[in-house]
Design a protein around this nucleic acid. Structure first.
Lengths: 124, 124
DNA sequence: CCTAGATTTAGAACCACTCTAAAGTCAAGC
DNA sequence: GCTTGACTTTAGAGTGGTTCTAAATCTAGG
């Protein structure tokens, strides 16, 4: 655990945070100016591999990093501005693939992305 | 409707096709050698905007284009080789966002991506 | 035909991300 | 306190996928 990694982890602390790598880099540099973008990516990839952080790819734009790995949740994204929220949909436990729909795959996980237009982006 | 656009549309015809832009370009060139990659992207983006084709972004790698817009379905993707299948999960109709989970968004659609390892990629 | 507008093209540009090679850091053993 | 060696960090180059640009080409209407 080096100073650089600690700073990246600190930036990611908190609920309902969905920063991009670029934003994490900027926030990390505010605390430790010599942190490089490469280190941010290295650290994020390690955190993801360790299961400490989730990668969220919601369509266009860069990946987001979500530190909430303890509560089962899904995401709601604004297709205009990219705003991203954690949501807990009803019926998410009932979502399954029947055996004849598994094609021999070993299923690892399921991601659900709701897309919409947020109130701020809604044309008046 | 130009010759180039017709060729792109022809390449996409069929069920359970999930080509990348690169693959569509290669297949289109086999029929009409002077089709450029830029035109393939232009045409695909128009088809997506018109709702004739779905864009599927399943994690890493390039976007896939899915001509099946008539049957409600979801996707199953192999995290190793990128193989992509159409699936109809049980319980997909029961998946909804309660009003207090909508944050004022106008919901447009829901995408579900099952991730797993396909039989061919499963370590022996 | 001519012209105006749209379409296509090759290639440059761009963004997000990964790789590379060199320099820096740290801990353990002498 | 020094070496050593393994690991980390860094800046910058490289890469893959997609979009942009500006010039050439096509198309339809007159």
């Amino acid at each position: 655990m080096t100073a650089q990694r600690r700073v990246v982890a600190e930036v990611l602390a908190g609920e309902h945070v969905h920063l991009t790598a670029e934003a994490i880099h900027a926030a990390a540099q505010a605390r430790l100016p010599e942190v490089s973008l490469a280190t941010v990516y290295n650290t994020l990839n390690e955190l993801v591999a360790m299961g400490e952080v989730l990668q969220v790819c919601a369509g266009d734009g860069p990946k987001r990093y979500d530190p909430n790995v303890t509560d089962a949740h899904q995401h709601l994204v604004c297709v205009r501005c990219g705003d991203l929220r954690d949501v807990v949909p009803s019926g998410q436990d009932g979502l399954h693939l029947a055996v004849n729909q598994r094609y021999g795959y070993r299923i690892l996980n399921v991601d659900v992305v709701f897309r919409g237009v947020c109130a701020a982006c809604e044309p008046a």
